[in-house]
Nucleic acid binder design. Structure first.
Lengths: 223, 223
DNA sequence: TCAAAAGTGTTCAGGGTACACCCATGG
DNA sequence: CCATGGGTGTACCCTGAACACTTTTGA
């Protein structure tokens, strides 16, 4: 593996994960307080270094599963950050990933043992390094895709009400939506199935619960 | 710079440029025949290694200006490729960039001295490494943005006719457009200015030449 | 005079938006 | 019986698509 390119500079490469979850219906990010220098004590994204025997994507999956216990998630690159002095500790080139997780299924013990915490989107503190920029990119990334790809369901529990779904769209898009129009568009997507289940938690009357069925997705998803 | 992270694995990081240009009204890519192993003799994108004293973005700009003599270009990351064995010569993590250049202004001498060549989009050969995937990503990248950001003008000469502009949209989008509807939409963008110049080259009657004026761009660009 | 490209408006349909009231139930 | 959230349909507007003929001029 060292036959060619011998004289090239080499770099530490890291991954940083922008992890979205719905904590009690509120869109939140999983952030950690750094326990090491540099930037010790500051809030930052969860990251890790790429290892010689794994792909960059695999490194991101590893970091995410160490922290949440989850695998097989919606995870996408949002950009690579390569400014010379972006990390005051060393030259590190970092690839940022956006992950959408089902809050109910994640492992809370791992989260607390990493000094990590769920923080609502509106209350994100200033982050170390260039992590604020990564969060902004990740957010605009999911905003763009939300209406055109079935990614909302990665954030919701298996069964959800249309009100929950609409609230999610409203927080991500940052605008209020008309209930009737929203439901009309939902009904046009065969992959969003109504089930017999009824949620009695949030209303006296009870709300029908829906489920995302990938098998019925015809690739024309649109809300 | 080596106080922290001492035990981390280090990687060669490269940039690969997907360079688009309009060669005689045909959308083309600048490709090079590799003169070194691995993959010697095969067509590939123009790339280079990131150096310790430059950002990743700067490395991409450097590679592009070495090959074309151009700087201050439209250049965007399209993705980072980090599979373990993507490069048979060594572990190399590569950041792919998409560049749009004004064909008339580039330095042809540099191109030929690098064994590079403009190749029409429809005639792209199979490329080494994962470069075919990079090209696909870059193409879908500009396809997405073309109608919503004024990037077409990076490919066109300073003065252009509406027919030229429409042909560019047609090749990138891969579909024929209605002339009257296209011109109607162009007219709604104040940043596309009609000038007094007339192009007598391509028609007997002569066609009005237009110019993109960034100062008049109100951020609502749409075609 | 003819070939070749430039230039120019109108009509129509479908999708998107705005909008308000009744229903079911637990307390 | 009332407060709370669930659920439903229509009218209008406007954007996007389809469509054909006249103009200019060099050869």
């Amino acid at each position: 593996m060292t036959t060619y390119y011998n004289d090239s500079d080499r770099f530490i490469v890291s991954v940083d994960c922008v992890i979205f979850g719905l904590n009690h219906s509120r869109l939140s990010l999983l952030l950690a307080r750094r326990r090491f220098e540099p930037e010790m004590g500051r809030w930052s994204l969860m990251g890790g270094f790429v290892r010689a025997d794994e792909s960059v994507d695999d490194a991101a999956k590893r970091v995410l599963s160490e922290l949440t216990g989850l695998s097989d998630l919606y995870m996408q690159q949002v950009g690579t950050f390569g400014a010379v002095h972006r990390d005051p500790g060393a030259r590190v080139i970092s690839v940022a990933y956006c992950a959408l997780i089902n809050f109910d299924e994640h492992d809370r013990v791992r989260v607390t043992s990493h000094d990590a915490q769920w923080i609502e989107l509106e209350q994100i503190p200033s982050l170390g390094f260039d992590h604020t920029e990564m969060v902004a990119k990740a957010l605009s990334f999911i905003k763009q895709r939300l209406t055109v790809e079935p990614i909302a369901f990665s954030l919701l529990p298996k069964y959800f009400t249309l009100t929950q779904l609409q609230q999610l769209y409203e927080t991500v898009l940052g605008e209020n939506l008309d209930k009737r129009n929203f439901r009309k568009r939902v009904a046009e997507n065969p992959c969003i199935e109504k089930t017999e289940l009824i949620d009695k938690m949030t209303s006296r009357r009870g709300a029908a619960m829906y489920r995302y069925n990938a098998a019925l997705d015809e690739g024309k998803f649109h809300i």
